[in-house]
């Protein structure tokens, strides 16, 4: 009995310890974000522990800076095009393989793992070595690699939604009822996997929006994205840099919340 009492005590202590740990994780993850946000809105913050005053000046300066607006536009254009091309060419391939050639799926999964395994630093060497001798503009080469590098997210999202709606049976049923393959795809299958696909696209976009290695090594300041602009401001103006990071965090936060809401909705639909 004494042993059991002992163990109960141990489990209780353990429980308290893990909750403290969870709180510490929360603080550790939140602290850099709050500090940067506070810095983005503070007037002077060089000697005192807390900022001397609050101001919108840095954010305003940032949004009046044409260089930032252009960099933002380039980031959206680059990540957006890569995701768009991926939806146009990669997603249909995933559909076809999952629905009609399950035997090929093993190979497809192998390429997904390969893509996942090779980080940007390795790919950038390959891209520089291969495309620097060709006439293809480097920015297009980077776009191409971006299209491939979101493959794991696109595959995961598309396959999961196809499994959830039992895609093959849905297609067959629609065709049995007289719809052509194209119609069955457009009017039946696509609407039912749309939320999952949209979440996968948003995830891919947010990953690419934060990409720095490839664009910096392969193209550099000739195509200044938000990340490269931030890198340039890092050593020159702390307040402007923190304003950029603040805008970036807000954008990522919005994207994450949209994704979470959509995923929850999709789950709710399935349970209903």
């Amino acid at each position: 009995m004494a042993y059991q009492e002992n163990e109960k005590g141990f489990v209780e202590t353990m429980k308290k310890f893990t909750i403290v740990m969870l709180i510490l994780i929360g603080i550790y993850l939140a602290l850099p974000i709050f500090a940067t946000a506070l810095y983005a809105f503070s007037t002077e913050w060089n000697k005192t522990i807390l900022p001397e005053g609050l101001t919108f000046e840095w954010i305003r300066t940032l949004f009046q800076d044409a260089r930032f607006i252009e960099a933002f536009g380039r980031s959206v254009l680059l990540s957006g095009s890569a995701v768009f091309i991926s939806i146009l060419f990669i997603v249909p391939a995933i559909f076809v393989i999952v629905l009609y050639f399950p035997a090929l799926e093993k190979w497809f999964q192998a390429s997904v793992v390969m893509v996942y395994a090779f980080p940007g630093i390795i790919l950038s060497v390959g891209i520089i070595r291969f495309y620097s001798g060709t006439s293809l503009p480097m920015i297009l080469a980077v776009t191409g690699v971006y299209v491939i590098s979101v493959l794991p997210f696109m595959y995961q999202g598309t396959r999961n939604s196809l499994r959830n709606v039992q895609g093959r049976q849905l297609m067959d049923a629609a065709e049995l009822l007289g719809a052509s393959k194209m119609d069955a795809f457009r009017k039946v299958l696509l609407p039912s996997v749309y939320p999952g696909l949209f979440v996968a696209s948003l995830l891919s976009f947010s990953v690419l929006f934060g990409e720095f290695v490839l664009i910096n090594l392969v193209v550099g300041s000739r195509f200044e994205t938000v990340q490269i602009y931030l890198m340039a401001k890092l050593s020159t103006s702390g307040h402007i840099a923190s304003a950029i990071v603040f805008v970036y965090i807000v954008l990522m936060g919005i994207l994450t919340l949209v994704m979470a809401t959509l995923t929850k909705k999709a789950k709710g639909m399935r349970h209903a």
């Binding site: 850099p32 990340q227 890092l234 990071v245 990522m252 994207l255």
Partner: peptide
């Protein structure tokens, strides 16, 4: 999604 250059900056702050 908070990694890379923005994260390094946050730690500098």
């Amino acid at each position: 999604n908070f990694s890379g250059v923005p994260l390094a900056f946050a730690f500098i702050v």
